[in-house]
Nucleic acid binder design. Structure first.
Lengths: 115, 115
DNA sequence: CTCATTTGCAACCTCCTGGTTGCATATTAT
DNA sequence: ATAATATGCAACCAGGAGGTTGCAAATGAG
């Protein structure tokens, strides 16, 4: 509990942070679209499309798993990865929320100015 | 030209990467909600709510600006920051796109399996 | 004018992230 | 049985991200 990096003071859903962080990397975003377009795939298959190492891809996939963005299941000697759709909707919903919050704030400000 | 087959040099909006990266930090996400709730604010005002230094906040704001998430204008001796709403919608739209792409892929797979 | 406020700039530090290589292990193919 | 394939694990490394401190320059207030 005595983690050094604890500057957060808000009650905002911390879940979204790791989710956005997971999406905020070119290779990871590329993996997302890859898994979208071509469905569940093994690591080597995913690696074949990229120019970085298999282990690097694996690490990225783990990050995505940590964020709840992707899951893996073992099939034979290969590990097949797929996306968790629910999670993307969470992110989208969060952005919607922020957007609406913003609208509300703007509304208040406008009212304030108009008085 | 809607050919969609190239693995690396794709038509994916690279813009979104920095946007998601900008959102993928607890303090930055906190700043977003702060700017949402309380409207445009100066740096010191934003710093007052956090435990980290003014310079750290400034750096975060610059990152957000780089991603197109926030803008600043000078007013007197203070710099007032506000969000760029369009940008959030871009992110939301991108997530929607991914989601729909995914649905399409799932549809194809299902059809494939059912045959 | 003088002083306090607000910001910017630059240097510096620490630690995490993204990436690599090497080796071990499990599973499939011949 | 032996070879090839697919993955996991661990050590290691460079660079960038997040944070701090110190100082200088505008701008506003008394």
């Amino acid at each position: 509990m005595s983690s050094r990096r604890r500057p957060n003071s808000g009650a905002k859903p911390k879940v979204s942070v790791s989710l956005f962080a997971a999406l905020g990397d070119p290779i990871r975003l590329w993996l997302v679209s890859r898994l979208c377009d071509n469905g569940p795939q093994s690591i080597t298959r995913l690696t074949a499309g990229s120019r970085i190492t298999r282990q690097a891809i694996t690490k990225h996939l783990r990050v995505m798993e940590e964020a709840g963005l992707a899951r893996s299941r073992r099939r034979g000697r290969e590990t097949v990865w797929q996306l968790d759709r629910q999670r993307l909707e969470d992110a989208r919903r969060h952005l919607d929320l922020i957007s609406k919050q913003w609208d509300a704030a703007l509304g208040r400000l406008r009212k304030f100015v108009e008085d």
